[in-house]
Design a protein around this nucleic acid. Sequence first.
DNA 1: CTCAAATGATACTTTAAAGTCTCACTTGAG
DNA 2: CTCAAGTGAGACTTTAAAGTATCATTTGAG
Lengths: 197, 197
Amino acid sequence: MNQTTQERIIAQAIACIAQNSGASMDEIAKAAGVGRATLFRHFKSRAELMLAIKLNAGLKLQAAVGPVFDTQLPAREKLLKVITQLIPLGASLNVSAYFDHPVRDQDPRVLAPYMDCMERTRQLCLDLKAEGDVHSDIPVSWLVASIDSLVFAAWEKVESGDIAPKQAPWLVLSTFLTGHGTGQTAAWFTQQKDVHQ
Amino acid sequence: MNQTTQERIIAQAIACIAQNSGASMDEIAKAAGVGRATLFRHFKSRAELMLAIKLNAGLKLQAAVGPVFDTQLPAREKLLKVITQLIPLGASLNVSAYFDHPVRDQDPRVLAPYMDCMERTRQLCLDLKAEGDVHSDIPVSWLVASIDSLVFAAWEKVESGDIAPKQAPWLVLSTFLTGHGTGQTAAWFTQQKDVHQ
DNA sequence: CTCAAATGATACTTTAAAGTCTCACTTGAG
DNA sequence: CTCAAGTGAGACTTTAAAGTATCATTTGAG
């Protein structure tokens, strides 16, 4: 492979931490097929390695979705493209879930890419509403949250082999836009909601 | 309050670990308003405390959803009730996310409640299909995954104060059954899907 | 009030993992 | 070939947190 040692270490560290958030430097070194000493030569402390992983994830995130957000496409098409870009990021992003949530991270260099992505997703949802693509009575924060969580779920299912990588974006989008219910259920649901609210 | 010391310790330990998965026994003791020694009197090791938290989460899960699964209601009504029960569990369940995923836990006593709940959710989704409530062409594993992830997202949003606790189940259910799209978008989506697949 | 049980404070030991250092070995550019 | 740069192995020190032990204090049932 043409990966540098540093890159290999980061990749394997991500894999280790995904399995066990408390993975030791020893385990990480072994996973990366590298001596302990070499690991410390590249990252002078555990904290520095963790930071590198987080920064790496932020860069991947921006590289994946930045260009899409920058286009002038209709919101719904942007949405499809964003989802499609996001899913294959998989573990490198989900690292977020294994550390403390990136949104709580102290370091602004770690925080920024996530905040940026979130804010732009929020804007995208506002556009979806404005362009008449989603119902206007759903809270924007729920729109953002449901996209996030569905993408996360899709990645997990792709990873576990339950759904095909190419199918994933369509499942997310269809869940988000049309849901899984039939006409029959939609009627029941509306009625229930009226009764209970 | 009428909570025993043990209960208070467990509750506060959950809160600590939700913020920082590597929280020390010292931090947990302080959070519980208890001396270090007392903490170790109740749980003779960190591992034992962690186990207690996990078992506790399993019990809560079963108490919340078991009775609903046991009823003979139509699948769609069961679904609404399960979601409604699940959301308020919040942090105690999400502990799952901060430890290693419960599905990967070694101890069968930790594993069992999750496996059971998952299997019954799966059965529920099959019933939803059988009763004509959801489209039959969606993979069951995706149905289960989308419920899971939407419930998780709803809990987070309730916790952060973005959506009202009573509104949460309806948001989850409406996302799952009808999605957020308008008629306009549904047409576009179907067309896109045909083009790309 | 009295005493047993539980607690808090704190000093102590142990342990696991982080981090350092040295040295012999590989490898690839010149 | 030669040498500099990077590496692996492993012994070593340091550190932070786990876990233990002791004792004085609190508390609540009788």
